[in-house]
Design a protein around this nucleic acid. Sequence first.
DNA 1: TGACAAAGTCAACACAATGTTGATTAATGA
DNA 2: TCATTAATCAACATTGTGTTGACTTTGTCA
Lengths: 195, 195
Amino acid sequence: MAETEKKEDRRVRRTKKLLTAALTQLMQEKQISEITVRELTELADMNRGTFYLYYKDIYDMLEKIEDSMFEALDRIIDLEENESVDRQTKPILLKLFQFIEENQEMCRVLLSPNGDMSFLHRLNGVMREKCLRFFRAAEAESWDGDFDYHYNFLMFGTAGLIRAWVNRGCPESPAQMAELTDHMIRRGGLDLQNN
Amino acid sequence: MAETEKKEDRRVRRTKKLLTAALTQLMQEKQISEITVRELTELADMNRGTFYLYYKDIYDMLEKIEDSMFEALDRIIDLEENESVDRQTKPILLKLFQFIEENQEMCRVLLSPNGDMSFLHRLNGVMREKCLRFFRAAEAESWDGDFDYHYNFLMFGTAGLIRAWVNRGCPESPAQMAELTDHMIRRGGLDLQNN
DNA sequence: TGACAAAGTCAACACAATGTTGATTAATGA
DNA sequence: TCATTAATCAACATTGTGTTGACTTTGTCA
């Protein structure tokens, strides 16, 4: 459990970084399933056996990368919770988008057609915990047993927003995106007349 | 291009149906990438060589299954367009949810953690065309260059709703879901006070 | 109904990626 | 500096792949 224990040997850091870079590149070109350990290590210019020192297979590697991302996200958002006393969603969204911007390369491939559904689901799960406190406290009794539906709509919608944003290369600032997301969540996307 | 040309030999239909059932089952248990042609055909109780008569590999098979789903969806929604003259989003949503209900097994696995990101993206693309006419004609000039963001939020949000629904086994009727979705799209998920 | 065409079976094949090994060399950090 | 640990390299059995040709079974349609 004790993550980032002390910090690894420089060679280990180097190796993992090279492998991650190679994987990110390959995932832009093809399905994860089509990526072999052989070509990954060839691209990273290292011995094939070295890969197995750290990962069981490609999927195990991707999962471990996601692990460390979620850990970082966890730290950031828990920190936020202490700072802000008010019940706004915006601060938490701002932190989220700042995090996405910093990890935009990996987020882009994970949300691309070659991406990983389980990443979406994990993001869904992690954010759900964070959001529950905000939502439940607010006057959200209106959705009773429908919370699941409401939450899934808003979370997946936000994921769609993130996807579009990273696909464009994050031209807007995290603050702008947090503002837009907050607006979408509160007032919906269609400002139509009531029919 | 000429799809469903005449209709295939009964043996071909049988084979493809058995393979599809086997794939659906296996995808509930494991990642697509971990599914081998060998075990798939063993489960379907047929010769391994038979698989290669129709599909290049597992991914090719999944893609072809998705193809036929999108074809069916296309027909349904194009039909709808002729029937309804008004500019409501609800009729199109109703047809969508009816379609999902009929294909709920496959939809459930495709949207599960073991699912297929490219399915989401294809759904995104197909529905985008359909929705453009409705949205553009409506008073939706408010979002100008931001259409992409709005659309992605609403489409992914709807996908999240679909996911939650099929995961529960579609207890609500398609009409109820269309109503809920319409509400989410128009008024957003949070009915909070304007802060 | 019966004949022909097409689908499915079976065994065999070369090929490629996997995951693991033991011995050796190189880099790190205290 | 030196003991420790990472990385390399070659080799290995194993497994899935994709394809072949000869065969048996099944469906279609005249």
